[in-house]
């Protein structure tokens, strides 16, 4: 298997001196609408080193997918980046014109979306879509591109790739299709992959295979991954660090082991409480009461305060900023001098 991947390793940056695969500074995404502007993502800063997997976790609507789409430059109008900077491999991309962004997508940043059943064009073979992507970015001729397509399919663990390359998407199972999608994301060796719920639509038995594959490929190629999910279990297995998002903001960031062992933010604790433990008998899974505020009704102070079991008067008055807490960062008054 290793000889297949030799070509991909050439670009692997030297540890230490390479720029981060992704650096996001103060990203704010807005949706102007007739009834005022909705802020879907507010002042989000993230950084992913080459070869690192950053898990981004939160409930639906927390802004995690929106952050991913903003990095890809695929926000649906009228959504727009209102503030902040996005750098991929050190190069600023948020202000690029569409034409140039087309060359960044696929080449510098790949994407994997939730549903492998609908991510592939049903009318084209897996090979045709791979060859298309490879030729656009690497300018190979048809035969070389096809060779590479077959090598990629083999690398993502598709048996008999010489045959499978000419199959249409409906001839693959869900797990196999997601492998094809991963091969497509990796086709031009991007520095960064945005994986938006890559395993949510798959059978549980397949999920672990796919996350392990993703993990291995990124280790081998030195690709940074932004793994967007609502599943703490996937994060625990795959990610190096985790960023917890709530109502458009990052509320806690830290190394996975640290955050799992000692979550600092009450919201993170709530998320952890909703994972069933296998060993212990739990009478009832904990749940976080209430639901995330709508974007046009975010409470003042800490946006989590109405649902927080430990909220105090300060939480309703002032919004906490991210600050060092343990091995990571947390935006919570409990960690920053109390809630009174």
């Amino acid at each position: 298997m290793m000889h297949e991947t030799r070509g991909f390793r050439d670009r692997r940056p030297e540890a230490g001196e390479a720029p981060p695969a992704l650096e996001v500074r103060g990203l704010t995404v807005e949706f102007p609408s007739r009834r005022g502007t909705l802020t879907a993502v507010e002042d989000v800063s993230l950084s992913i080193a080459p070869g690192e997997v950053l898990g981004v976790v939160g409930e639906s609507g927390a802004g995690k997918s929106m952050t991913g789409l903003a990095v890809l430059g695929l926000l649906e109008p009228p959504g727009r980046i209102a503030a902040g900077e996005i750098r991929i491999g050190g190069r600023r991309v948020d202000d690029l014109p569409d034409r140039e962004m087309e060359r960044v997508r696929g080449r510098e940043v790949g994407a994997i979306f939730q549903d492998p059943l609908t991510s592939l064009n049903p009318l084209f073979t897996a090979g045709a879509q791979l060859v298309e992507t490879i030729r656009i970015h690497l300018g190979l001729d048809r035969r070389a591109a096809r060779e590479r397509a077959i090598a990629l399919l083999r690398e993502v663990g598709i048996p008999a790739p010489e045959e499978r390359v000419d199959h249409h998407p409906h001839q693959f199972s869900g797990g196999m299709r997601q492998r094809v999608v991963i091969a497509l994301a990796l086709a031009a060796e991007p520095r960064l992959i945005i994986a938006d719920e890559p395993t949510t639509a798959l059978d549980v038995s397949i999920q672990a295979q796919i996350t392990a594959l993703l993990r291995r490929l990124c280790d081998e190629h030195g690709t940074g991954v932004m793994l967007v999910t609502h599943d703490m279990g996937v994060i625990a297995e795959t990610a190096d660090r985790v960023a917890v998002m709530y109502a458009g903001r990052v509320v806690e960031v830290g190394p996975v082991a640290e955050v799992l062992r000692a979550p600092r933010h009450p919201y993170t604790r709530g998320l952890m409480g909703s994972i069933p433990a296998l060993r212990r008998r739990v009478p009832k899974l904990t749940q976080i009461d209430g639901s995330m505020p709508r974007l046009n009704a975010i409470p003042s102070g800490c946006s989590f305060n109405p649902r927080c079991p430990q909220a105090g008067p300060r939480c309703r008055r002032e919004r906490p900023a991210l600050a060092a807490s343990g091995a990571g960062l947390a935006a919570c008054w409990l960690e920053q001098g109390g809630v009174e």
């Binding site: 997508r105 696929g106 298309e132």
Partner: peptide, 14 residues
């Protein structure tokens, strides 16, 4: 459709 979004994400020109 998702495959259009994905095609754009792969850098296929508009």
């Amino acid at each position: 459709a998702d495959f259009i979004k994905f095609a754009r994400a792969r850098g296929v020109p508009a």
